[in-house]
Design a protein around this nucleic acid. Structure first.
Lengths: 193, 193
DNA sequence: AGGTATCTTGAATGTACATTCAAGATAGAG
DNA sequence: CTCTATCTTGAATGTACATTCAAGATACCT
């Protein structure tokens, strides 16, 4: 008997980073080897192939993001303020201009989902989970009386998420802090008034 | 003497369609040959290489979209209503689920701009032009007294564009007409109130 | 300490691709 | 009608890639 030597989570996070930085097709096996420290043989043994590595990375991304999400809402009953923090964090990621901070889900959605319905489904499921988690937070904010609008919480969550997608794309061409903050500010206003 | 036989605009629109559908890296020269009707040699003679074809396609896309944009604002003094029509048209394109109706600029921005600063610049310039054109329309809507907000028109244009980016991404996972229309409706409301 | 099952390694493989180029075709000039 | 400059064709080229696999290394069990 002998166990694998590598740390699966570390490997997947490295692969995630590489895919986010250069995209799926443009990340060669050699680059994945360099990024993960795993030789091709090991990658194929552990994940079947490059596509399997992407699928595993997407799953790890989901887990990591879900954890991160809960942390934003852990320390307070002021759910609406936490939603603001969550949004501010997106802006910070956008400003950092670190392409490794992009969203693996939207990146992969643009590049590979069109050609691969399984990956399409995985990504859609992940984003739907995020959307539902946001809807719950909006519902909570309503019961806390922080939001007085009569709009549907599912709708608010969708609009908020749409804004985040838009913000990320916008940042690709205009990564100026002030402008992104202004946009986020209005988005926050429009979902909370 | 002898002139080229192919119609440059037709070829570029076919290439555009192919790139929008499958992305840049995943569209092989063979597929481009099938799409454009041009043999590899002709493509290389006319556009230098595959990247040159993308650049030329991006330029044709800019021209086509600028024409289309002006048409939306040609027939009326009710600029605000025309902005609504423009937005509704984005929703219609999203609903059609025809990936060839996606936005070549955002698609290329996601896939290649990160690795190629010239293409990055071209796309950024194109999107900035659209943003500025939108800002002018918002200014006009204000002088027509259709908009009473004291918000900066440049800001309104950016927010509107951000919403469109978000809408397009959102549609990839939820191409349901009703939901997209609802989101567009709120976006319109938030920029026009 | 020895045996073995499993993991790791990285060179070898085949494939798919962008790109080239020389032969063939054709429009227009004279 | 002939000639030639230019365009068109598509097979040939070299490269870069994902994937495989057999040899080597190593941890665990007895």
């Amino acid at each position: 008997m002998r166990n694998a030597e590598f740390d699966r989570e570390k490997v997947l996070r490295a692969a995630m980073k590489a895919f986010m930085h250069k995209g799926y097709a443009n990340t060669s096996m050699q680059e994945l080897k360099k990024a993960t420290g795993l030789h091709p043989g090991s990658i194929y043994c552990a994940f079947e192939n490059k596509r399997g590595l992407l699928l595993a990375s997407l799953e790890q991304y989901r887990v990591d993001r879900a954890t991160e999400f809960e942390q934003f809402f852990a320390n307070s009953n002021l759910t609406l303020l936490n939603l603001k923090s969550y949004l501010d964090n997106v802006v910070i990621e956008c400003i950092s201009c670190d392409s490794a901070q992009a969203c693996l889900l939207t990146k992969a959605l643009n590049e590979v989902a069109e050609q691969d319905s399984e990956i399409q489904q995985v990504i859609t499921a992940n984003l739907s989970m995020l959307q539902q988690a946001l809807a719950e937070k909006f519902t909570q904010a309503k019961t806390e009386k922080s939001i007085s609008t009569d709009k549907d919480c599912d709708h608010l969550a969708r609009y908020f998420l749409m804004g985040i997608y838009g913000l990320r794309t916008f940042a690709h061409t205009h990564p100026e802090a002030k402008i992104l903050e202004q946009l986020a500010e209005q988005l926050y206003h429009d979902v909370s008034q």
